[in-house]
Each structure stands twice: as C-alpha cells, then as structure tokens.
Design a protein around this nucleic acid. Structure first.
Lengths: 168, 168
DNA sequence: TATTGTTATACTCTATAACTATA
DNA sequence: TATAGTTATAGAGTATAACAATA
C-alpha cells in the first residue's frame, strides 16, 4: 500500500518530502527525538531525568540492590556517565552507595525509602508523558503500536528481552 | 492490556526494567536512536547523510529549485547547519547555488542531473535500511506501524502533514 | 529596521582513555 | 595482570548569536 497524496503540485512549500514521510525509519527517528525532548522536559520539573528513572526502576525491580556495573550494563549506560547520575541521586538521598565487603572494588547501590517515593513521582510523570504523546491513539491502537515496537526492540534493543517470543 | 512477564524473580540481571519496556515512549526513544545510528552508518558508505537525502528529495519533489530558507523551514533544519550541508552537496556538484536576481539576499538552490543520480542512490540506501530495520515485521505489520507512526507524527511532527486526516 | 545567508562561538553529549584501589 | 569505579579529556553535534549584504 503506497501512500499517495491528493495533489502533487509543482511546489511543495513547507512540507517534508513524501518519500521521507513514507518511511517508517524516518518517522521513528523524528518521533524518537520528539519523545526524548518531551520526556526530558517533563522529568526536569521533578529535577531528574529519564536516566534517573531507569536507575531507580531497576533497583526497585531487581531486589533493591545492584552493583554499578550491573546497573550500567542492564540499562545500556556508559559506566562513566552512571557515576554522575548516581552522584545526583545520592545527593538527594534517593540511593546509597557502600563498598561490597566481599569485593572491595565494587559499590553496592541501594534504593532508599525516599528513593522509592521519588520513583513513584517519576512514574506519574512517565504516565503523563505517555498519555500526552499517544493522545491521538485509542486503547486498541496503543496496544497495537506497543506490540509492534516490542517486536522491533527484540532485534534492535535486545536488552528489552520482554514477552515477545524470540525468532518467529 | 498490561504486559506481564512470566517470572518476577528477585534478581533481574541484565534486563531493562519492565516498567520501561512497557512504555511506548521509552521504546520510541530507544528505537529512534537505533534507527538514526543505522541510517547514518548506511548513508556514510555513500559519503553522505540522511540530511543530504532530505535536501535532495525536497528539491526533486518541489520543482527542483528552492531558496535556502524554504529548504531549512520545510525540513526543520537550522539555517546555519544547512549552509554546511549545501557546501558539501555543491562540492560534489549535486546542487548549484545562485543569487536570486529578484531579491539578491536570497540564494536559489537547484538540483543538478548528478544530484538526481545521487538521490537515486540514496533512495536505494534508504530502502535497504528500511528493509533491514523492519525485517521482523511482515507487510501487514509494516503498514499498521506506518499508519500509527503517521498518526503520531501529525501532532508531534506537523511538517509531515501527510495523508492522515487532521483531528478525528 | 528587518531579512538572507554566512561565520564564529559556546554549550551539551558522548566516547575514550587515564587513574586508583582493589583483586 | 585484570577489574570496578572514578575522573579528565577530546570529539561530535547542536544551538546561539554576531556579521555582511540587501531589502
């Protein structure tokens, strides 16, 4: 099914070329950028970023304590970048770092009760962003979109493993 | 419909938290980044970038000649950035710049025959990227995804105007 | 005075690699 | 010697603003 515009006028002033709009990869790039922008702006009001949300969510889900390397690897963050993010979370007492007595090179990161509350605030922010961004889609369309994105993620973002069964 | 993973083990080593994977906005961000990376890499082999493709496609579609401001506005590029992109295209003789005799502040940019051929090469690259990126989806799923992305773009990337009818 | 294209500047992100302390 | 975390550095990318020519 080829997308066909009504009028193919000689002058297409102000519009993105059809051949780009016809490309899902192009749309994914643009929408991904827009989504990131909206998310960063929204989290900013809470003084944090989507990256912080990722860290807190991981700690909450995975038994509250993880080493820095495990966090970085699971989320796909650079280890150097993670240090700064944890510094910020620790300054707000949302996480605690302590040396692992078993291997004193490691730091064990733990989620604090304040961190858990911050996470709940971030979840509300995320829900709001989600709702605003998908406003034009009804529930069925949202489910369909999510299913398709999950399928793409299973090859292009393997860390998302998730419920979509591997190769068909 | 809530995504539910089989085992909710105490340790989720190596995986992105469920609450992120459950978010379409999160997936859009990650997939958008991955798509951009793949696209840039692929276009690099042709010595150009997706940005160049946008410019050439716009010129081809819109009557071959446009002013720099019109190009920048239509594609959403910064005008300063566009200068460098056009320099590169002009160095390869894919476009020509000449002063507009009517308003000597303006530059008219024209697509050359070589530029048209380059555009055709870039179209092949784009088709390949598209096919690789959507490899896990069948034709029906691709159409469904495109439809949904178009709908999102109509609010978050208005320049994509396109065939999806405005408000519901 | 405002606008077009250009150039220069600065700022953000990210990636790399050095550095320490432990193993 | 290798690894975990930290810090510093450099590069790409982007946004901002100054600038010259023209309207």
């Amino acid at each position: 099914m080829t997308v066909k515009l009504g009028t193919r006028a000689a002058t297409v002033s102000g519009r993105i070329p059809d051949e780009l709009v016809a490309s899902s990869v192009f749309l994914l790039k643009r929408l991904g950028t827009a989504a990131k922008q909206k998310a960063v702006d929204a989290y900013e009001e809470a003084g944090l970023s989507p990256y912080h949300h990722g860290i807190l969510a991981l700690l909450d889900e995975g038994g509250v304590r993880e080493t820095q390397g495990a966090i970085a690897d699971a989320l796909g963050y650079d280890r150097g970048t993670l240090v700064g993010l944890l510094d910020e979370l620790e300054a707000e007492h949302f996480v605690e770092r302590r040396r692992d007595p078993v291997d004193r090179r490691r730091h064990i990161v733990r989620l604090t009760p304040e961190g858990k509350r911050a996470l709940e605030r971030l979840r509300r922010v995320a829900r709001r962003v989600e709702d605003e961004f998908l406003a034009r889609l009804d529930d069925e369309q949202r489910a369909a979109l999510h299913e398709l994105l999950l399928r793409l993620a299973s090859t292009h973002e393997p860390r998302c493993a998730g419920p979509v069964e591997p190769p068909a």
